[in-house]
Design a protein around this nucleic acid. Sequence first.
DNA 1: ATGACTGGATAGTCCAGA
Length: 289
Amino acid sequence: MRIATWNVNSIRPRLPRFWPWLEQRRPDIVCLQELKLTDAAFTGLLGDDLAARGYQYATHGLGQWNGVAILSRVGLDDVERGLPDEPGFPDPEARAIAATCGDLRVHSVYVPNGRTVDSDHYRYKLAWLRALRDQAAADGPASVVCGDLNIAPADADVFDPAAYAGHTHVTGPERAALADLMALGLRDVVRDRWPNERVFSYWDYRAGMFHRDLGMRIDLILASEAVAGRVDAAWIDREARKGKTPSDHAPVIVDLDEAPDGDIGPMVPPPSNPANPRGRRLPQGPASG
DNA sequence: ATGACTGGATAGTCCAGA
């Protein structure tokens, strides 16, 4: 099963990129962020074409900012829009949606940016992350938190840590909030798969940042242990950042083995292969470079 | 270089993004 997450930076002007991407990558579950549409506008714009491709969908969109969705070809139940006791700015925004897709609880999130350190928006970001952790704490054993976390987990996840000193996305409190979320038992599956690689998911539109590969890794798939153990491939789809009218974010894609029937039995040891010590298939596309 | 680009709302430029 393939799961993808993509901050599309407005779905309406992205449609000429979105439909070919969906046809090419054929994910079973898609988490989208920054739709910048109401739910009604999303349905009017994409509803029939998604149904024709076999996707159910649920959206949480309130207007021109934010907006998140989950698309699924493997079932879509128990949809939850927003977070329990969700903080707002000042009112709650459309930044979180969750649903059960087959055996998986799936979250699609667009974490607040934070703007500048110690601003009201920064405090809102931290409060929002606590509310997300509290929601995810109620998940069953098979869950994924996917989306634009707006936090670079480590210095290796920004092109120049010194350039980000004193800026949001890299501060201790933000990383601590991410660590608190991951302390529920969630794994950063792309970093697990590419422990020493230069792997970014966002590049500023300006100054040829993508061409020079000066970016950040802020779009994450965080998977519970039971799911992380099923990961075959985990990579950033840089092809989607190339060419005309891209989003400034690239999709993140994870492939899982089929869920075991019934109880999870003893793990079969992976084949011993020095070129691929994790015993995983190689990804369908490049992770970076 | 406190820049650079893109999208939304608007009808001038401003806000937001990160």
